Simulated assay, not measured.
Amino acid sequence: MKVLVPVKRVIDYNVKVRVKPDQTGVDLANVKMSMNPFDEISVEEAVRLKEAGVATEIVVVSIGPQQAQETIRTALAMGADRGILIKTDATVEPLAVAKLLAKVAEEEKPDLVLVGKQAIDDDSNQTGQMLAALLDWPQGTFAFKVEKDGDALKVTREVDGGLQTVKLALPAVVTVDLRLNEPRYASLPNIMKAKKKPIDEKAPDAYGVDISPRLTVVKVTEPPTRSAGIKVEDVATLVSKLKTAGAV
């Protein structure tokens, strides 16, 4: 079974994000970048499937600037076999990402696409669903557990009421949630080996996909500063404040 795993280069989740003075976007100068945490979980799950003898090949694909090669190398160090970089310096919106991934899927013919449920930079939760629709493949979203079940895939997913299990015919698209697994750290020997693994570079034009943005960012602002707390004299005052807090 071949597994395709899209990975995105984003600002590291430990970094405090700064907004540009002109409010046109987020300041990326001298900021640590890393793999989107949900995509790390996707890579880890693909590697575990390979270690279990279910998957035979893992291909990672990233859409972004030349520096996105580092993100691909991280996935290769974790255990992926090869990478594809669709090189562009433009901001690519979820629909364009899904269209590009659909073209890659048509070329690579994977049995499974494991996608992070969302990216932590724009917080979009659309790409996996759009990709499944474009490919006309079954989808399992917010995966809590993924198991091979004969020629199908059994996905336990998180829903408001608890857990729901669905059975998907392959090929399929699965978006992963936080509690699916705990990603491993890449060892130094694997990092060195990853430098020798192949990365195929292409441009969006090679796939015939128009990545022109459909949305215009009006402005980006920082969240309001939290107001300071207050001290109360006794428990009765605290209870009174809590009761009337919603009315203030």
Rank of each mutant, 00 (worst) to 15 (best):
K2V: 06
V3T: 12
L4D: 04
D12Q: 06
V17W: 10
P21C: 06
P21E: 00
D22P: 14
G25K: 07
L28A: 05
M35W: 05
M35V: 15
N36M: 13
N36F: 09
E44T: 00
E44V: 03
A46Q: 06
E51S: 11
V54A: 06
I58Q: 04
Q66G: 07
Q69T: 13
Q69Y: 05
E70F: 09
E70N: 11
T74P: 01
L76Y: 03
A77T: 10
G83Q: 03
T91R: 14
V92Y: 06
L95C: 10
V97F: 00
V97D: 06
V97G: 08
A102S: 14
A102T: 10
A105I: 01
A105Q: 02
E107G: 12
P110N: 12
K117W: 14
Q118F: 07
L134H: 06
L134C: 00
L134I: 15
D136T: 03
W137A: 03
Q139K: 03
T141R: 01
F142N: 03
F142G: 01
K145W: 01
K148Y: 00
K154A: 12
T156S: 12
T156N: 01
R157Q: 05
E158K: 14
D160F: 10
G161F: 11
P171V: 04
V176W: 07
L178Q: 05
L180D: 04
N181K: 07
R184L: 07
A186V: 00
L188M: 10
K197D: 03
V209Q: 08
D210K: 02
I211Y: 01
I211W: 00
V218R: 06
V220P: 02
V220W: 05
I230A: 13
V232M: 12
L238V: 04
T244R: 12
